[in-house]
Design a binder for these strands. Structure first.
Lengths: 212, 212
DNA sequence: TTGACAAGAATGAACATTCGTTCTACTTTT
DNA sequence: AAAAGTAGAACGAATGTTCATTCTTGTCAA
């Protein structure tokens, strides 16, 4: 009775179903606490399909990883293309990361919160991947142009993004209750202005804050 | 022939050997890539002993976790006891964390770099443990006394320690080559003074830096 | 339009292996 | 000789992977 079944929408392709299911499960329980059989059930595919498409459990994790790294790279590149100061670029990237943490929690969790080295063999640490290198380059360029204080690139990049990344971790761990975007302004202020009590005149503060 | 064997030193107790071996292996390969049999070989004990002392694999990981949390708590408390400003306390704790990262790498790695939730069931996130709460209290007290800028405690704590923790992660991942202690001054400067290019007169800068 | 057929994708029962745990025998200590 | 600690072979459950089979899709001749 084909007419009764017309509601059947375009079914998502098998490989997409596998990746989505795997992402959800990996984030929820951790790679090693998820079996191929779990993924198979969650994705409503057969085990054979998983092996056909990805070659195995690690293959799924790897495909997921590369896919998300690519998306992240595109996001970073899009911000780099924009006509902004490097400081504004940093701010905007932090804002977008905060936003994604709220709206696409699992993606951010898999990217920034998972220990890939424990299940992806021979994978270099994520911080030496292209998008993360691009982040550091933004900081470096900001230093060159005098927008950002000069110093060791690693230290500076860690100082710029460290607070934000820490906030993301805390949010993913469930210890911060409110959406991260609520804290954006304060995080940005702390990062540019430092943790000293504010005593400078308002005008100077505003000039230096570099709000987006 | 007891005289020939006199060199045999006081043998480390069995439970210590187990914990040390487990720490090394867990940090090197990750909890899930280490089997009880691996620990048994590395520690030169029998499987039975491991079960007698810790009740199983997770028991070993849990004992290790509590033990190290305790050590960390003592370290934090020792700094709190000292007659220092809250800002100096933050600085000193960061310095000690950097130092431990160099000298007791595995301890710091297991504490700050492992995803305990993936292998310790029903364990709350480490950032809600007593020593971490104590860290936030230092920041809170600093805010009350006007030593640290006012704001949301979570954001402020993340901003104070975020950069340092990020540096530790990068060092543990092997992407930072030099000892963290080499970067201490710069990290502290960035954190208190912010990432804006330095333009303030030297005197004011020094006053605000709060060097330890 | 129908049927035959080939190529590719999907299926899932079966398999081999690994790993956490148990249990009984043995040794040391008190 | 009782108690506590150690030893390690053996077990069963869980898991990653294989592969022979079935199903789907597209093509082409009748």
């Amino acid at each position: 009775m084909p007419y009764l079944d017309k509601t059947a929408p375009v079914p998502e392709p098998v490989d997409c179903r596998i990746l989505t299911a795997a992402l959800d499960l990996f984030v929820e329980r951790g790679f090693h606490n998820v079996s191929i059989h779990d993924v198979q059930k969650e994705a409503n595919v057969s085990i054979g399909s998983i092996y056909n498409h990805f070659g195995g459990k690690e293959g799924v994790a790897k495909a997921l990883y590369y896919h998300l790294l690519n998306e992240f790279e595109e996001m970073v590149n899009a911000v780099i293309e924009e006509d902004l100061s490097n400081r504004e670029r940093c701010n905007k990237l932090i804002y977008q990361l905060f936003e994604y943490t709220e709206t696409r929690r699992n993606i951010i969790s898999y990217m920034l919160h998972a220990k890939h080295r424990e299940f992806l063999s021979d994978e270099p640490p994520i911080c030496s991947s292209t998008p993360f290198t691009a982040l550091r380059n933004i900081v470096r360029n900001g230093m060159k142009k005098g927008e950002i204080r000069a110093g060791d690139p690693w230290v500076l990049a860690a100082s710029v993004f460290g607070g934000a990344i820490r906030m993301i971790h805390l949010r993913l761990d469930g210890v911060i209750q409110e959406p991260l975007t609520d804290h954006y302004d304060e995080v940005i202020e702390c990062m540019w202005q430092g943790m000293n009590p504010v005593e400078a005149p308002a005008a100077q503060r505003k000039q230096a804050a570099g709000q987006q």
